[in-house]
């Protein structure tokens, strides 16, 4: 069974169609980069996958949970599907450790001693072991984003979704976050990441999906997508990015 299967997903805001029949299958361990112009529906698709946005037609099966228009059992799905946002969205009133522990504690009832181990484990995976007691406003953007990744990892997700997680960062801070994500990919995490970092998509993603006007316009192994784009839309998209 694939980690994620999207079938004929359609969504509109009011009368404006935004996703016009998306089909996508992601296998376990796949790293899928989603690229495309602004407004092509990348974020919307990602937000549909963990139920943040309702949709009108089609179905999504992710980490063994089926999601349809009824939106039942969303919480069970979210326990196994992590999401990292462009704007980090850390909880400013909680320390790094508390940010990480909150969901394992209140959603899964993890006991205290295990929570502490968990915090140490996920923080070391994002290279921030020494920051457990810091507050979000004491960290750089890159560090905050890595804490957000650690917070998501603490739920031990089967699939992780990343929505332009480096777009709010200065160029010199982008690298450290991309490195963290690349390490997760190497460790076998199944991921779907919306990104504007073409070089990164090419290097780290096993597959790349190009979205255009609410559809998956072209997809395939990353090497092929970037070296031999089949459609004029993708060719011009890659060309504008190189400039």
């Amino acid at each position: 069974m694939p980690a994620l299967r999207i079938e004929n997903l359609k969504k509109s805001y009011g009368t404006v169609p935004v996703l016009k029949g998306i089909n996508l299958a992601v296998e376990n361990g796949d790293v899928v980069a989603v690229i495309g112009r602004s407004g092509s529906g990348k974020s919307t698709m990602l937000r549909c996958i963990n139920g943040l946005e309702p949709f009108q037609e089609g179905s999504i099966v992710v980490a063994g949970h089926r999601l349809d228009q009824s939106r039942a059992n969303l919480r069970d799905l979210r326990k196994e599907v992590g999401m990292v946002f462009q704007s980090y969205n850390l909880f400013p009133h909680l320390s790094v450790a508390e940010n990480i522990m909150l969901a394992p504690r209140v959603v899964k009832g993890l006991p205290r001693d295990q929570r502490e181990l968990l915090v140490r484990d996920v923080l070391s995976r994002v290279g921030l072991a020494e920051k457990a007691s810091a507050y979000p406003d004491e960290l750089s953007g890159g560090q905050q984003q890595r804490v957000a990744i650690a917070r998501s990892l603490a739920m031990k997700p089967k699939v992780m979704l990343f929505d332009e997680v480096t777009s709010a960062l200065d160029p010199e801070l982008t690298g450290e976050v991309l490195k963290t994500i690349a390490e997760l990919a190497e460790a076998g995490m199944t991921m779907v990441l919306v990104t504007h970092e073409m070089g990164f998509a090419r290097r780290v993603a096993t597959r790349t999906v190009f979205m255009h006007e609410g559809k998956i316009w072209e997809e395939g192994p990353s090497a092929q997508i970037f070296a031999h784009p089949a459609t004029p839309e993708l060719r011009s998209f890659i060309a504008t990015d190189l400039k």
Binding site: N50, L52, R75, D76, R78, K79, G82, M83, F85, S87, N89, L90, F91, L102, A103, V106, V107, R151, S152, M155
Partner: peptide
């Protein structure tokens, strides 16, 4: 709203 969303994505009720 993003604070609600982040908590929502972490499966909090």
């Amino acid at each position: 709203r993003t604070q609600w969303e982040a908590a929502d994505a972490l499966a909090l009720s």
